[in-house]
């Protein structure tokens, strides 16, 4: 999703001279066109994420719309207190771009697995948290963020995920990719493609899923969760992220806050992110049960269990 992001930002930078991109010394083969076209709107802050984050806040205070760019753990977690105090504390117009959501950099090891970024960023005051489901959403959401005011975090998955379906994209509103009544699959980030494939597998087996891309994790689309709880046979959240604090947690909060009664509710995520295992993204998704076949299997099991429970209740 890096290319759609940078290309969209180039368009935004052309129209708005206040758009400013700062990299923490990353982006080989990706950022050069932007840097060449907009030398006065581009900066390499060096391998210094704390200072990058604070100076982004200072630039934003002087009217710039700043995007900071690095691998997710480096742009979001390394300078966390700078994000909190300088960006959120001043509601600075800074968009933090975190590359490589989940296991995008699987083979590079634990340091490069972005498995807590969404939870941590979502906990910060006033932070809009975005994880596009595919290149199309990455493009649309980048365009919307360039015009948005205030702090935001944009998680970009590294390998471009296959595009699923076309819907209109709006900040804070889940995109519905297909409708079905048996169950709702809610995804955040590029794991959306696994959910899409799972919904195809399930359709072949007679189970019709609603598929939602919850690309805006904070503020979450409460109406979409309510709709899924009331109109379909249950909610399954899927995220390439720790099962603590991300999409599943946010959905559970909505369910609790609004006293919703979904017929079933299941959170699929990474249970043990600290496991030190190398592997490509597909391998690690399978290992953590986040591939399309595993998701489809979990849906079938869940519907079988809740179906039996309902029969017992009758």
């Amino acid at each position: 999703m890096r290319k759609p992001f940078v290309e969209t930002l180039e368009n935004a930078a052309e129209q708005n001279p206040d758009i400013f991109l700062i990299t923490g010394d990353l982006g080989f083969g990706v950022l050069e066109p932007f840097a060449r076209r907009f030398p006065r709107q581009f900066l390499n802050a060096g391998i210094a994420e704390q200072s990058m984050t604070a100076l982004a806040a200072g630039l934003a205070r002087e009217g710039r719309v700043v995007f900071t760019y690095s691998i997710a753990n480096f742009s979001a977690l390394r300078p966390l207190e700078f994000v909190r105090n300088d960006i959120c504390g001043h509601q600075a117009n800074v968009k933090i771009v975190g590359l490589g959501g989940g296991f995008s950099y699987g083979a590079l090891g634990f340091s490069h697995h972005a498995t807590e970024d969404l939870a941590v960023m979502s906990a910060l005051p006033g932070m809009t948290v975005i994880a596009p489901g595919d290149d199309y959403e990455a493009r649309e959401l980048t365009r919307l963020l360039a015009a948005h005011s205030g702090p935001a975090y944009l998680r970009l998955d590294c390998p471009s995920a296959p595009a699923c379906a076309r819907t209109e994209v709006a900040l804070g509103r889940a995109s519905q990719l297909r409708d079905g009544r048996d169950v709702t699959l809610v995804a955040t980030g590029a794991i959306l493609s696994e959910c899409w494939t799972a919904s195809e597998l399930l359709s072949d087996r007679g189970i019709e899923c609603r598929v939602l891309s919850m690309h805006t994790l904070a503020p979450i689309d409460r109406a979409a969760i309510r709709g899924a709880a009331e109109q379909t046979g249950g909610i399954i959240t899927v995220e390439e992220h720790s099962s603590k604090g991300g999409l599943g947690t946010a959905a559970a909060e909505v369910i609790a806050d609004e006293d919703l009664r979904p017929q079933s509710f299941l959170r699929l995520g990474i249970r043990n992110p600290a496991e030190c295992v190398s592997g490509c993204q597909d391998f690690l998704r399978r290992r953590h049960g986040l591939d399309s076949a595993s998701i489809a299997g979990r849906v079938e099991n869940l519907l079988r269990t809740t179906g039996r429970a309902r029969e017992r209740a009758l």
């Binding site: 900066l43 704390q50 200072s51 604070a54 200072g58 630039l59 002087e62 300088d86 504390g89």
Partner: peptide, 25 residues
């Protein structure tokens, strides 16, 4: 008060961002 502080090590990098903006403009 131009900037909220309290945690040490923030003021100088934020000031760098402000000074860079002044220099660019």
């Amino acid at each position: 008060v131009d900037w909220s502080t309290g945690s040490l090590g923030h003021g100088l990098p934020v000031a760098c961002g402000m000074a860079l903006a002044a220099q660019l403009d």
